[in-house]
């Protein structure tokens, strides 16, 4: 991966953290592409672990832990370390241990999400949320509503929707951290 690419992603992440959130969804999409490529390579064909599950867990972690990235540091090593942790964690949850060579993470091609009908880990985590959080997260993600549309539809204040969304996402991430 080129330093140019790192600089560009880092600049966009800095902007997002500083409050300019307009390009944030595209930034996450680009990060998903990078992570998807390296996770697929890491798992190999026929793995018991679904690559897209790890892509989603990594994205969630990148989002919730973005304050740990030092804005003056390169961002790709940070993203790759998170992806690597999530791969290892996925195997740990399935009671297997694997060792990963971090060099294998360098230089990967972005890849497209493959369509599968199988239920995602994140779906199960979503189902375990409290009713209020689940409805808010589902409305914004699966149904594609905005914060204000969700507030109207559920008869909530916008700030309450934001809080429920954030807590719901944090709860989903916490589920992944547990041994299950």
């Amino acid at each position: 991966m080129t330093p140019q690419k790192d600089k560009e992603l880092a600049a966009r992440m800095r902007a997002a953290i500083a409050g300019d959130t307009t390009g944030y969804d595209q930034l996450l999409r680009d990060i998903a592409g990078l992570v998807r490529g390296l996770v697929a390579r890491k798992l190999g064909p026929g793995s018991a672990v679904d690559a897209e599950d790890i892509v989603q867990e990594t994205l969630l972690a990148v989002h919730l832990k973005r304050h740990t990235w030092r804005p003056e540091a390169p961002i790709l090593p940070w993203i790759y370390a998170i992806a690597r942790y999530k791969v290892i964690d996925a195997f740990r949850r399935r009671g297997q241990r694997i060792s990963l060579d971090i060099d294998a993470f360098a230089d990967v091609l972005a890849a497209e999400e493959s369509e599968t009908a199988s239920e995602r880990d994140i779906e199960r985590a979503l189902a375990s949320l409290s009713e209020g959080q689940r409805r808010v997260v589902a409305a914004i993600s699966v149904e594609g509503r905005s914060i204000s549309e969700t507030a109207n539809a559920l008869g909530m204040k916008e700030t309450a929707v934001r809080v429920a969304l954030h807590r719901g996402l944090a709860a989903i991430a916490a589920k992944f951290g547990k041994t299950s």
Binding site: I140, V142, R162
Partner: peptide, 17 residues
């Protein structure tokens, strides 16, 4: 949940760091 759906949720949560 598709990854694109998840990204929508994360983007909506962008102001909170």
């Amino acid at each position: 949940m598709k990854t694109e759906d998840l990204i929508a949720a994360l983007a909506a949560d962008a102001p909170r760091t």
